[in-house]
Amino acid sequence: MESTRVLKSENRIQDSFGDRVFMFFIYLFLIVVLLLVLYPVVYIVSASFSDPIAVTAGKVWLLPVDFSLRGYEVTLQNPQIITGYVNSLIYTVGGSIISVALTVLLAYPLSRRDLYGANIVMFLITFTLLFSGGLIPTYLVVKDLGMIDTRWALLIPQAIAAFQVIIARTFFRSAIPDELVEAAELDGCNDLQFLRWVVFPLSKPIIAVLALMYAVSQWNGYFDALLYLKSADLQPLQLVLRNILILNTTNSGSMDATAMAQRQQLADLLKYCLVVVGSVPVLLLYPFVQRYFVKGMLIGSIKG
């Protein structure tokens, strides 16, 4: 009895006055950080739900003023946005499938300690992180392959990220013990059967991590589309958003012309709506997939 009481009191050493002041500042700091991160998001979401006149007059600063869905009505009728959404969906789903398949098929053999040459290949893959040919030579290769202005340009040239190969390899090394390979070999299982019936069922966590990382980078990327795509009907959402939001150009034919011309206000409001529309899919998914990202990051950071 006596000893447990002592233990408990040991765990709860009273904070000194100095420590309590210190903790106060820590909470204060975190609350300030929280507000700084949240405020821009809240402001933009509120503006997007406000009346166009209130937005242009600068009345919105925290909560929606004269709640209206006018901006979203116009945004979601814009054919450019719809095309962008559909394209981004194609690139994200297609790209992730291709990327995950290629990465796993490359990383699993490289994780095997009994595969001759695996370390040299691994070095060559890692080296691409240290040194690259650069923008222009890569562009020339894509051009020579005839991929410019085709969907393949967004699916293939960035299909495998060396980081993801390293992560996947580290995962396979730790998740699939050598004894398992030996046991399966003794039972007459060949490498492909082993991959299908042992490795694959065990690697669902890493497949989830890889798929999410590839999907987010596909969804969020605009640079490759800027480099390789010219046709408007192939452009992913991010490039469409860039054209409207940052370059301030709208394809006058496809934008709702009367609304645009008549109302500068609506154009202002549209920007807020577009920012929301463009980031909603990823941010809605984020709380559910966060742990996979943390996991992927931590697998990748194990040294050695």
């Binding site: 030579p137 290769v141 392959l145 040239p157 495998i160 060949n190 490498d191």
Partner: peptide
């Protein structure tokens, strides 16, 4: 012994050859 493992690596290796190492060599321009 492991020709199957070498075989499934081919697409990935081709990727690094074509999109990483060929550009490195054509940086000679």
């Amino acid at each position: 012994r492991h020709w199957q493992l070498y075989l499934i690596m081919v697409p990935g290796l081709l990727y690094f050859l074509i999109f990483k190492y060929i550009p490195m060599s054509s940086a000679v321009i």
